Computed example of a mutant assay.
Amino acid sequence: MRYLLIFWAGPLALFWGWYFLSLNDISFGTTFFSREMNDLVFEVYGNVLGIDPQAIPPLAARACVIDSLILFAIIAFRRRRDILARFQAWRERYS
């Protein structure tokens, strides 16, 4: 579970943290978090991909959601016996 937090939640938190700080121009005196950097980064990505730069953040959000659902489905499949045992214990306790 520790590796899940490091390799999945860490990069997502870094990216979305940067995105929302730079989108709102909360730069803390650095260029990295400025709105100009946000616009430049998405303009470069838009030119590379050949799409409108304003379309990239919703596409990234949708990709993060779908990837997260796939990841949690794999984890749930690997731990299905534990999940089923907890569900049965919960059902016996409350029924």
Rank of each mutant, 00 (worst) to 15 (best):
N47E: 05
I51N: 05
W16L: 04
Y45L: 10
F20E: 06
L12K: 13
M1D: 12
L23N: 02
Y19P: 00
R91A: 09
P58M: 01
I6T: 15
F33N: 01
R91N: 14
L84I: 05
W18Y: 02
S27G: 02
V48E: 05
F7M: 14
F72E: 03
R91I: 04
I83C: 10
L59Q: 13
R78S: 10
S27A: 15
I83Q: 06
N24I: 02
L5S: 06
A73N: 03
G10K: 12
I51G: 07
E92P: 01
I26V: 11
R2H: 15
W16T: 04
R80T: 11
M1T: 14
L69A: 09
L71F: 07
E43Q: 14
W8L: 12
W16Y: 03
R79L: 15
A63R: 13
A13I: 09
I75K: 08
A76D: 11
L21M: 11
R35P: 00
D82A: 14
D82W: 05
I51R: 11
L59A: 15
R91T: 12
F15V: 11
I56T: 03
V65H: 15
F32P: 00
A55T: 10
Q88W: 12
A89T: 03
V65S: 08
F42A: 01
W8I: 05
F15D: 13
W90R: 09
R81A: 15
R62A: 07
D82F: 09
G10L: 06
R86Y: 09
W18P: 00
Y3P: 04
G46V: 10
D52F: 07
A85L: 10
A89P: 04
D82P: 01
R2P: 03
F7K: 03
P11G: 07
R79C: 08
S95Y: 09
T31C: 08
P53R: 02
F15T: 14
R86M: 07
A13Q: 14
I26E: 00
R78H: 11
R80E: 11
L12Q: 05
R91C: 08
A76M: 12
F28V: 02
A76P: 13
C64F: 02
C64H: 05
R35V: 00
P53A: 03
P58R: 12
G29P: 02
F7G: 06
G17L: 13
L59S: 10
R62L: 12
A61T: 08
F28C: 04
A60E: 04
V41K: 01
A63L: 14
G46L: 01
A13D: 10
P53H: 07
R80N: 08
G29V: 05
S95N: 06
T30Y: 14
A63W: 04
F32L: 13
P58C: 02
I51M: 09
L23Y: 15
G46Y: 01
A76S: 12
W18E: 00
L5K: 14
L23M: 09
L12M: 15
I75Q: 09
M37L: 01
L14T: 06
L21C: 03
A73P: 07
F87V: 07
F20G: 04
V65Q: 11
A76Y: 13
D52P: 02
F32Q: 06
